[in-house]
């Protein structure tokens, strides 16, 4: 009897890059197992919000997932949100490549939660989307009140960058931007600003405080239930999808930048000096707090691997 693996993503409708990625992963698995394994695919919001879908993965209702890490089960997952670990694509991709320090750290953290880490699926560097103007320095940023995700260390980071931060539920953010409850949306890659807020925001400052990535994962019990050959098929499929994204991510991000500009919006890259100033300010303020959040040991790992810059 054919076994069925249930695959989902929490951030990507059918036809989106993430949606296509899990479809490709599923196709790889089916092809490599000669139909021994069948797959069922669930896209963003089909099985609920981000947290709910992650619950399903944790409980084994879903077997495989391309997920954006949730910190409710293990705070240490926030390691990937440590601000200004890197600001260049090649540094970030190196950190997330197989067997690199970050991948090894995530491997351990995910295993402790009963999940198998199968690779990163990078999206790119985030920034700050704003309405009617933008800021390139800590001083200028204080004029903007921006929404931050209610997860550490996002608030701490955006606050260290000089912005006023505010809590607004994602479901109400669109109208909150329209009416002026907040002036911007912080901490997302430009894809989300294009997708959700292209109508209401006008500026995007690519401040690159965090490198955001999805994670390809399996529920550990589902994983252990597979034969060695099947595990090999799942892992090889994940690696293929991951490497494809390593090649495609930057181009995709550039594509969203293009769409953003075509909407008549302004897109702001920081100069080297502006970036250096922001980076040192934020590192100085937020990194000490990260020690409490993810543990001194993991933070030591971060420091050792990023101190060069």
């Amino acid at each position: 009897m054919a076994e069925t693996l249930r695959i989902a993503t929490d951030s990507g409708a059918k036809g989106s890059a993430a949606g296509n990625a899990i479809e490709a992963w599923a196709a790889e698995i089916e092809a490599a197992t000669n139909g021994e394994i069948e797959t069922e695919i669930f896209y963003q919001n089909e099985l609920g919000g981000q947290q709910e879908v992650f619950d399903l993965l944790m409980a084994g209702d879903l077997d495989l997932m391309l997920n954006w890490p949730m910190t409710s089960y293990d705070q240490r997952i926030s390691i990937i949100y440590t601000p200004y670990m890197f600001t260049e694509w090649d540094e970030a991709l190196a950190a997330y490549s197989p067997d690199s320090w970050m991948s090894q750290a995530l491997n351990g953290i995910y295993a402790d939660s009963g999940l198998k880490f199968l690779g990163a699926w990078p999206e790119g560097f985030n920034g700050v989307g704003t309405k009617d103007g933008h800021a390139t320095s800590v001083e200028d940023a204080s004029a903007f009140k921006v929404r931050v995700p209610p997860v550490a260390p996002f608030t701490e980071t955006i606050s260290a960058m000089g912005y006023q931060t505010a809590t607004v539920d994602w479901g109400e953010l669109y109208s909150a931007l329209q009416t002026g409850v907040v002036d911007g949306d912080a901490a997302n890659v430009i894809f989300y600003e294009v997708e959700y807020f292209g109508d209401v925001l006008t500026d995007y400052t690519h401040s690159r405080q965090q490198f955001l990535t999805g994670i390809l994962t399996a529920n550990m019990e589902s994983w252990d239930g597979l034969t060695a050959d099947q595990q090999e098929a799942v892992a090889a499929g994940a690696e293929k999808v991951m490497l494809a994204q390593f090649d495609a991510a930057k181009a995709a991000d550039d594509g969203y930048v293009q769409t953003w500009k075509e909407l008549g919006h302004s897109y702001v890259e920081l100069s080297d000096d502006q970036m250096a100033a922001l980076r040192s300010t934020v590192r100085e303020k937020v990194w000490p707090q990260m020690d409490n959040l993810i543990g001194a040991e993991l933070m030591e790992l971060v420091r050792n691997n990023t101190s060069a810059q």
């Binding site: 910190t71 409710s72 089960y73 705070q75």
Partner: peptide, 8 residues
Amino acid sequence: KRPQSIPL
């Protein structure tokens, strides 16, 4: 079995 906490 899988304890969680309320963020913040």
